[in-house]
């Protein structure tokens, strides 16, 4: 396998990173909203939030992607397949991130919130200064794993015709008849990206760990 082929894969991996990063970002915003709705205690918003999470965690991403890809034009939204793919990935990761965030908030010890109460902090201040920072620190490892999960899952958007690392590998493999080195290289590139993300996660954890009981 030539270096040119490898370089084509590396270039395509840039798209993988972009689609994943955008999905993780929008997914996080959506997850925060879902988590807020779930913990709000109001059934009118909590129930749909839980249903959303259950559906997107309970069905294969491949089928979610295809469903969204075919559903959007049917309801009059003619968007490029890249957008459909990012929506699918965002919804999927939002459901997982929402569960992670919920777990984080529920793991904040009751005592530290009571201490904030006794010091006169308002509900707002308690959320912003005490519960949120502690929850984020508690969820950092799980959020890092989720980011890696989405980077890997993004390989599935090749099925709706979006060009990224796996699509490129598949095309090159069938045109050059060298599936072994090409798919191995693709795997290697995914591995490198994920190791970097895992390293970033560890670094973030370590810089937050000093402040942990």
């Amino acid at each position: 396998m030539s270096w040119e082929l490898f370089w084509l894969l590396v270039e395509a991996s840039g798209l993988t990173i972009v689609y994943s990063a955008v999905s993780i970002f929008f997914g996080f915003l959506l997850a925060a909203a879902i988590c807020g709705a779930d913990l709000s205690g109001r059934a009118a918003v909590a129930r749909p939030a839980r249903l959303f999470v259950s559906f997107f965690r309970g069905t294969p991403l491949l089928i979610q992607l295809l469903l969204i890809y075919y559903l959007l034009p049917k309801i009059g939204l003619n968007v490029p397949s890249e957008v459909a793919a990012v929506i699918g990935l965002s919804f999927s990761t939002a459901s997982y991130q929402a569960e992670i965030l919920r777990g984080g908030f529920q793991s904040v010890p009751r005592g530290v919130v009571e201490a904030a109460d006794m010091c006169g902090l308002s509900a707002r201040a308690t959320f912003r200064r005490i519960r949120l920072p502690i929850a984020v620190r508690l969820t950092l490892p799980a959020l890092t794993s989720e980011a890696i999960m989405i980077l890997k899952s993004s390989s599935l958007i090749s099925v709706v015709g979006v060009v990224e690392l796996t699509t490129m590998a598949k095309d090159l493999a069938s045109s050059t008849y060298q599936p072994l080195p090409i798919f191995a290289s693709a795997g290697f590139i995914y591995l490198v990206i994920n190791l970097v993300v895992a390293g970033l996660g560890l670094w973030a954890e370590r810089s937050a760990r000093r402040g942990h009981a």
Binding site: S153, L156, A169, Q178, F183, G187, Y190, L191
Partner: peptide, 18 residues
């Protein structure tokens, strides 16, 4: 650290070359 799809491709398409 690698996608399941890539592993499946590697086994199915790459296997005969292994």
């Amino acid at each position: 650290g690698t996608p399941f799809l890539v592993q499946a491709y590697l086994l199915y398409f790459g296997g005969p070359y292994l």
